[in-house]
């Protein structure tokens, strides 16, 4: 029921103002000339220049991107397998434990996950560095991928898969040529989610990164602890810009796909009649 009442309009306006004003302030003040972040002293792009010249930030960004790419890719494979097992796998030994291990990391405090993984790496004698961050990120983000993919697997018609199997496909072929294309949007969404979670993570990375590897959130955190700084504002603006473009593009693509799908269905109906 569409109701354009004052209450709804006010709720939405205030709500979105609360969500967006802090970020807008951050973006505006990243163009501030002064080092004193809260005093406006004229327009300048000088902090972007200093950021680009800062070797430590660039290195941290490169480490973060590599970790995010590798961990989200492994997490997508493992998470999709886990989702398939949970939704289509039927009964097997230890199924309850398995689903528990999928859901628990979603709500586990990061300090516990980080501490437990660090203690594991130390007790098996694995040197801390990029590899350990990748292992840690893969572990928690595969659970997010698995939840996203399994919600898609639950919702689609199973008979298509069964038809493929009846027509002589091996289970792997049926998965590859029938199931995978159907769940592809969820798999991509899962990968993006895993990638973002990895880019964003401070706590788990702080525990599992050794002195040899510094990720961008670790670097940001250590400079933010000393107070607000214009370089961080500039960096935040860049990150907010990338995310905004990404999210808007994704929503346009999915909207176009939806329209296309509806058109196809209408066409198919017309031919059937």
């Amino acid at each position: 029921m569409t109701r354009f009442t004052w209450f709804n309009v006010t709720a939405l306006t205030l709500g979105f103002a609360f969500l967006y004003i802090p970020m807008i302030i951050l973006v505006i003040y990243s163009f501030n000339e002064s080092r004193l972040v809260t005093v406006w002293a004229g327009f300048s792009t000088r902090w972007y220049g200093e950021l680009v010249g800062d070797e430590a930030f660039l290195n941290a960004a490169w480490v973060t991107l590599r970790v995010a790419f590798v961990s989200s890719t492994i997490a997508t494979v493992l998470g999709t397998m886990a989702a398939y097992v949970l939704v289509r796998g039927g009964k097997f030994m230890g199924r309850t434990l398995f689903s528990g291990m999928i859901y628990a990391p979603l709500v586990m405090p990061e300090v516990i996950t980080g501490l437990s993984l660090l203690l594991l790496f130390i007790s098996i004698g694995l040197d801390r560095g990029i590899l350990t961050i990748i292992l840690a990120h893969t572990t928690f983000s595969m659970c997010f991928v698995s939840v996203v993919v399994s919600s898609r697997l639950v919702s689609f018609d199973r008979s298509v898969e069964e038809a493929a199997l009846d027509l002589g496909c091996t289970p792997f072929d049926a998965f590859k040529s029938v199931t995978l294309p159907l769940i592809a949007p969820a798999v991509i969404a899962g990968w993006l989610l895993a990638f973002t979670l990895s880019l964003d993570d401070l706590v788990i990375a702080s525990f599992t990164a050794g002195p040899s590897a510094t990720t961008l959130p670790i670097k940001i955190f250590s400079s933010v602890r000393l107070g607000v700084s214009p370089e961080i504002n500039a960096l935040s603006t860049i990150l907010i810009g990338i995310v905004t473009v990404g999210v808007i593009t994704a929503s346009l693509v999915s909207k176009r796909r939806l329209v296309q799908q509806q058109r196809d269905e209408k066409l198919a109906d017309g031919q059937g009649a």
Partner: peptide, 17 residues
Amino acid sequence: LPFWTSFLIRVYAWIGI
């Protein structure tokens, strides 16, 4: 959209405010 933006940055924004 804010959910995809860095958690750390969203917390940081409030320090200035």
